[in-house]
């Protein structure tokens, strides 16, 4: 090109069809963006729990091992799970308070399975700052958290102390007469 000898810029002047020229660049950039998004997913997903963690995502348990009036603590998703076999007195006390002044209102029936009110399954983590509440202590005979004094009733509902919510009922179901699958 003659003008290049004179020292003018080497950038080419506009071609007769700039639209066609731009299309290919837009297509290439779009394809690049798509590729980047596709390759980004594995790098994001690798932070999700790995397969060995997910294998422990659900557990099965035979609740008939829990004597009446007692609680067994099982490890579920690396956290304590309370399996409590309630006495009729405890159930009655819980139902009686269904419409009391509760910080986190919930009926006892909504926290157990129909016909299986004697089995209360809860995540054993205080909803305040995460300590493990102690079984059977406190004014309502439910649980008492020694860290900051939260007290739960026999339905696991928060009654006194700093915790904002009731003890969490996990996703579970009865797979047999006395076997549950949690998670």
């Amino acid at each position: 090109m003659a003008d290049s000898v004179a020292g003018a810029s080497a950038v080419p002047h506009d071609t007769p069809d700039p639209g066609r020229r731009n299309f290919i660049h837009i297509a290439a950039i779009t394809a690049a963006a798509g590729g980047v998004a596709a390759i980004a997913w594995p790098f994001i997903d690798q932070w999700n729990p790995a397969a060995d963690t997910m294998a422990l995502a659900s557990i099965e348990y035979d609740v008939s091992k829990v004597p009446l009036g007692q609680q067994v603590t099982v490890l579920y998703r690396k956290q304590p799970l309370f399996v409590r076999h309630r006495t009729p007195k405890e159930i009655a006390e819980a139902v009686a308070d269904d419409h009391a002044d509760l910080r986190d209102p919930a009926t006892d029936a909504s926290r157990v399975k129909p016909g299986k009110a004697e089995w209360l399954i809860l995540i054993g983590v205080c909803t305040h700052l995460g300590c493990t509440p102690l079984f059977g202590q406190g004014e309502w005979g439910g649980w008492f958290c020694p860290c900051h004094g939260s007290q739960y009733d026999t339905s696991g509902r928060i009654r006194k102390g700093p915790a904002p919510k009731n003890l969490v009922v996990p996703d579970y179901s009865f797979t047999g007469a006395t076997t549950i699958k949690v998670g």
Partner: peptide
């Protein structure tokens, strides 16, 4: 194609 388009007018 993008590359050839860009370099079209440069000897």
């Amino acid at each position: 194609v993008s590359y050839r388009q860009i370099w079209k007018d440069v000897a």
